[in-house]
Design a protein around this nucleic acid. Structure first.
Lengths: 212, 212, 212, 212
DNA sequence: CATTAACCGAGACGGTACGTCCCGTCTTAAG
DNA sequence: CTTAAGACGGGACGTACCGTCTCGGTTAATG
């Protein structure tokens, strides 16, 4: 404090600090409800009761149930690993296959619910998109980038379009339920992605075409 | 499906017949609410009030709000046309481009809402999948089939996978909002579909691989 | 019903009729709570729960808890009797003494609560005043009127002022608690009322004085 | 009250002393809320916010909102004066008339609220009774006492009963609202009190009667 | 051509959850 | 040791809709 007390510090506000214990209890209660009776039965009142917490405490920190679930999921320690085998195909398969498997099992219902929630709440949609969804896109984009560095594929391949073509069908099957989310599907997705990444001239041509 | 789907004569029972006027008023009220304040605010009570109809009348004919909306949309006269230009690429583009445009405009919000609704209601999900969604898949599958007939592409191309790769990314962008639903995106989708359909050996190989 | 169907009838509206059973259960539950744990613990939620009724049903028919209690009390069969002994003093004493006794016992807390409620709710205040309170004033006014008819007291006595001087001190002791609500007090009240009613010229003189 | 109310030196303990500034701000905020939006909307949180004070500070010094209001009112400089005209009638009228006028105007709502509050809080009721209420009773009792000293009325008149008969109807009209709180009413009260004080034998006789 | 069964509007019902308000208590940092 | 700030568990509020249940009244095919 030698003069110059510019408030660059995070402004250690007065007042009782947020209870880490309550936060933990809330997230855990939400996860428990999610796993036992599903998202449909997850209510703020239910979470509050199970966590031994007042509703107000929940509303103070989360705008709606979706945010709680999202935070519970993303603060979950088991993160999606970043595959790095040295081979584009293997990297993709190691990314896509476990993801498809997870969606076919316990992650499916939660994912459905979160996406459904996002359709009616623009703010939550943005949060979901920029955190959870983007994390997964980033992994794939990183894989493609490394393959370009290695010279395995050309620099004209568009990682964004590739991400659409991998995650799009995955979500489509999850949400519409017209086909299985199995290993065959995972391999097909991988193969399709490979094919589109290997022969890339078409994409660049399209961009030029659009610029007309 | 060899004709005779009259399920043993529905036995036109006595009593007052269903009011066509009420049905019309209900569907119209639902559409009006959808267009003005959105699906979130669409409640059975609201529709009943706006249509000047009792709640019971609605519950007698529709299981939930989603079904009303679905019927309101599918009874809408403007149907998706079946493109038939003689060229696979042009057929695909004429299918995909208007669809993307529609989703980018007024169809988007309703589509989001229907899909969201389906995630919490398995029965509605099936209805949505087997009617609305399947209609669109069928058009694409038909286009691919005709191209195979013409010899433009081989018979080993998998129309189902193609449908996934076209509609998946479209829904993904609609629901996640990470990218534009514009003409460039439509052309990219079309180009990707073409590439995957033209060089097809990989897919068949994968099927064999899975059979091991 | 010989022609002439003028709608003097209470307009038998459509829709499910009000449930007499629910009404009864609500009033009974309110009384029970009142007698066991007191007005302070009487909440709409509590009444609804104890009556096996939804909150909405209560709110549909009563604006607040006070109205329920008021109705429960006034629909109670045990009414205040109208004394008629032929003597003004005895009539007054038979009116005042049991009333004071009741206030000193179980009626006291409820009365306090209703009056307290009325101070914060003008609409309820009017209801309380024009029903419960006025009923009691009317009995006293009637007693005084009959004494005037008998010639026991003059016609210049003001029954309204008398009512103030009888009920005022009673409520004052109830609400302020500075003195006992016992038989001595009842007799003092009665004697005071008698004295004021017997020698009445002063009151008329005051009225003339005010008219100046 | 013979001076020396220093209760054995309060042992001026260490630590930050009570903030007179906060006390003033709290009382003022309470008064402001009372005058603008009424007692119903007066909450501890509201007072704290308006006074720029923490809730804890309020709770440290006042048990509930009622006490704050009571202190705010009694610390108000304008005290009820003690009339001393040498005439019992004039003393009474000069006491009663301004009091009735005050209740008819700005004092009414606050008084209602304080009495209402007292009905649900025995501790506050006692405080209200032994301070504010008793002060007013004492003035009247003092007036009557002086008249007895002067020989204007006999010593068998009961000042306590008289206080009941004056303040009772006043409160009754205030709380029940069945009649005006105007000058005519004030004069009637005064006249009634005079009549009861002048001819007193009845009261003593009653006491004897009760002792049987 | 009367019966009668199914329909219709209105609207009350038991219920669940919502999001808000305020309570009285507590836990910080600052003075 | 007090203060401002503000988070905490808790309780009740009044509202919105849910899906069901009576009512009084239509409306057409059937007997």
């Amino acid at each position: 404090m030698t003069g110059m007390d510019l408030e660059t510090k995070p402004k250690t506000r007065a007042g009782r600090p947020r209870s880490a214990e309550s936060r933990r209890a809330i997230l855990q209660a939400a996860l428990l409800i999610l796993q036992t009776t599903g998202y449909r039965t997850l209510t703020i009142e239910g979470v509050a009761a199970k966590a031994g917490v007042s509703k107000q405490t929940i509303y103070r920190w989360w705008p709606s149930a979706g945010y709680i679930v999202l935070e519970a999921l993303t603060s979950d320690p088991q993160q999606q690993p970043m595959p790095d085998t040295g081979s584009l195909y293997d990297d993709l398969l190691e990314l896509i296959r476990p993801m498809v498997r997870a969606l076919a099992q316990r992650r499916g219902p939660v994912m459905k619910a979160l996406i459904a929630e996002a359709q009616a709440d623009a703010r939550f949609a943005e949060t979901l998109r920029t955190t959870f969804m983007q994390q997964h896109r980033d992994i794939l984009i990183n894989i493609v980038g490394r393959a370009q560095m290695r010279g395995e594929i050309g620099f004209d391949a568009d990682p964004e379009i590739t991400a659409d073509l991998v995650y799009g069908p995955m979500l489509y099957r999850l949400l519409n339920g017209h086909g299985e989310l199995d290993d065959l599907f995972a391999r097909n997705l991988t193969a399709s992605a490979m094919r589109l990444l290997k022969g890339t001239p078409a994409v660049t041509r399209l961009r030029a075409e659009a610029a007309e």
